[in-house]
Simulated scan of single mutants.
Amino acid sequence: MKKIVKTTLACLLALTVSAPVALLPAQAEAATKKAAAKKAAYTTAERTYIKYQSDILYKLRTQSSDIVQFALKADQYENKEEEFYTIMVNKLTAWEKTYKQASKYQPKDVPAKLKQAHASYTQAVQQQGIAIQSMKKTLLEDTLTDEQMDTYAEKFFTATDAFGKPAAAFDAEIKRLNKIYQ
């Protein structure tokens, strides 16, 4: 019995003396990871870029879906064509202003680690440009035939749907980068 107690005490004493030594490599590794994480941080320019581009894509997404929803409610404005036209022109004007803001950042302004995200952003903005032009032609040109109007409306809906894929790719790339850079 005395041997068991002595052995147990010896083991406990050995653990209390060696445990801090055993923790040192883990602590050193944690400090190295923390230092690496500090190195892998976004710069102010990169944070500004991400915020600006994300905000613009969000505006474009909400404005285009708002126009789609409003266009689908056109039957409710059957007797109020002027009111529908005025509201649609106002929505289209706001959408076009956001589109112009979207083209402010030129490729030379893009931080290096965000080039892939910018490529997706550019594709999304191009689709919005096609959608805006199609809607403007449908809405503002009086000399269009019904077939031409249908063609432009179809082009608008196609471009609006096509906007979703690159916009989602942009969001996914930013999320991927956020896991690396804090």
Rank of each mutant, 00 (worst) to 15 (best):
G164H: 06
G129F: 03
Y152M: 04
A159M: 07
Y77V: 01
K104D: 13
S120T: 06
R47E: 11
T158N: 09
A112R: 06
D75G: 15
F157W: 05
K34W: 04
L57S: 01
K6E: 03
Q101H: 08
G164T: 14
T43Q: 04
K34N: 06
A28S: 15
R61P: 03
E82G: 03
F84L: 13
A28N: 09
M149P: 03
A35D: 11
A94L: 08
A102G: 13
A119K: 05
I87C: 09
F163A: 00
Q27F: 10
D150L: 10
Q101L: 14
Y99G: 04
N90Q: 14
V125F: 00
Q148E: 11
P111Y: 00
T158W: 00
S134Q: 01
K155I: 00
T62S: 08
D75Y: 12
S103K: 11
A10C: 05
Y121W: 00
Y152H: 00
Q101N: 13
K73Y: 13
Q148H: 03
V89T: 12
E147M: 08
K3C: 08
Q127R: 03
A31N: 14
A162M: 05
A102P: 13
A131W: 04
K165M: 13
S120H: 07
Q128T: 07
K73A: 15
L57N: 02
M1G: 15
T158L: 03
F170E: 01
K80L: 14
V89M: 07
E154I: 01
A14K: 01
Q126K: 11
A119I: 04
K73C: 07
D66W: 08
K2Y: 09
E81T: 10
A162K: 10
A162Y: 02
A124F: 00
V17Y: 05
I50K: 04
Q133R: 09
V21H: 03
H118F: 13
K51V: 14
L72F: 12
I180C: 04
V17E: 12
D109Q: 14
Q63Y: 09
T32K: 15
L23E: 07
S64G: 11
A117W: 03
A159R: 02
Y181P: 00
K6I: 07
